[in-house]
Design a protein around this nucleic acid. Sequence first.
RNA 1: GCUCCCGUGGUGUAGUCCGGCCCAUCAUCUCGGCCUUUCGAGCCGAAUACCCGGGUUCAAAUCCCGGCGGGAGCACCA
Length: 477
Amino acid sequence: MAQAPAPEPRKATGSGRSGLPPLETDGPVVLRFAPGPSGPLHLGHSRAVALNSAYRGLHNGKLILRLEDTNPAAVDPVAYGLIAADMEWLGATPDETVVQSDRLEIYCGDARELLSRDAAYVCHCDAEKWRELKRHNTACPCRGGKPAAQLVAFEALLSGGDGIIVVKTDLEDRNPALRDFVAMRVVETPHPRQGDTWRLWPTYNFAVAVDDYRLGVTHVLRGKDHLNNTLRQQWVYRHLGWDEPRFIHYGLVSIPDALLKTTTIRGGIASSEYSGWDDPQLATLVALRRRGYQPQAIMDYWVTVGVKEVDITLSWQNLEAANRALVEPEARRLFWVPEPFELTLDAPQPLEKHAPFHPDRAEMGERRETVEPGATIVLPAADVAQLAEGDLLRLKNLCNCRLRDGRLEHAGDDPVKGVPIVQWCAAGAPLQLLRPNGSQTDGIVEPAAAEMEGEVVQFERVGFVRLERSQALFLHR
RNA sequence: GCUCCCGUGGUGUAGUCCGGCCCAUCAUCUCGGCCUUUCGAGCCGAAUACCCGGGUUCAAAUCCCGGCGGGAGCACCA
């Protein structure tokens, strides 16, 4: 029984070492991540994934992915696969995946149990009227029916008619959010996976309570926005005499400069404002991945943030720092010249470029290139603008030059202290850099880039980027 | 409006339950310096915080009361 998923070797990278406080527990730990399949995961989701996954590792527990697709109208069939892929990329592959729309018999069973215990009722009132009555701590006429009659009404609803199943709570509760809540309702829209086999669908709170219990979840780790939902779900536990899991709520995260709302992104893609879910302007996981974010950086970041109930603002700088620490030792260096300015090089003889792929790791090799006298050299226009006639500058890893009459005049090979050092290209290919703010910069990249598609590299003096076939995506400085 | 949660530097975090070892930890950011044929990395240093007001106490970031501030929920969404 005690399944022990191999805890992946979790390397304690830099910042993430502080670690999470262990969970209170008296046995095996079962956790779950439960998104609705409406699109791929984004940075906001990744906190829940990271925390649940970190605790799985810490307690050698089990992590369930539960797809919450009980609203047929809000399901994107491709999202099931996208979400699974995102979790895998994060290194948080679930031990088990369950889909709520496969479990309708279970919800119906527990609804019947609720009804027969007089803990729920079938309501045929007008929605607005029912809410209004609740607001005044008043029961609707349907609430008083006998369990036997309620059960009959429930069976009838399965095949036709209007109505909802309501969980009885305390109508006198001072918190208006906690007075009687809907457990199941009729949705005629066909479900992408189930077609029209079912018309009575559970709501979020009911399905979650049932599944957390029946799946043996021991710790429910989720955002603070679920505080009231927890209170509602606890009514189901009490009515049915179930032992409760431990509930842990972490604070809300606000992510600056990021569009996270799935429906808005979907709209932006439809209107071609974004090229797709992985558009570099987005904070979806696929987009961050495409730009060169390392999953471990994201996971580490959330672990250092922890599980407190305070609301936080995500710090891109801190996340970038975590990613830079991972990427910097591995990233090969390359010259990329933004807004290239052409100059002719005057030199007495051919010059040899010896540029290491990594300044601190000679074993990574170097890029070599011969530059003939009279060759056209491109420099960043911004750097040329800084230069006055006769000024000395160094073409990095090549030679010193002096700017004379709009040409570059060779001025020695050995580095001279205090001289500006600039990246340059002689041969090279056009390459556009895309930044997450949507801007694009034209430039020339050195020949070595040709065989480095897909790599995260550092453009010297520019920042880390990920190379694609004919463009580069800016990662961070 | 009602209900619930939270409030340590720019950002995040440790400490708050069990008051003293906290003139408050660590990371990141910022600013200097060193180093470096990148404005990357590395090394050294600096600056910046206990929301406010009372109270209890020899002693409060830590306990109590009252303000103020932020957030969430009050869906036949998840």
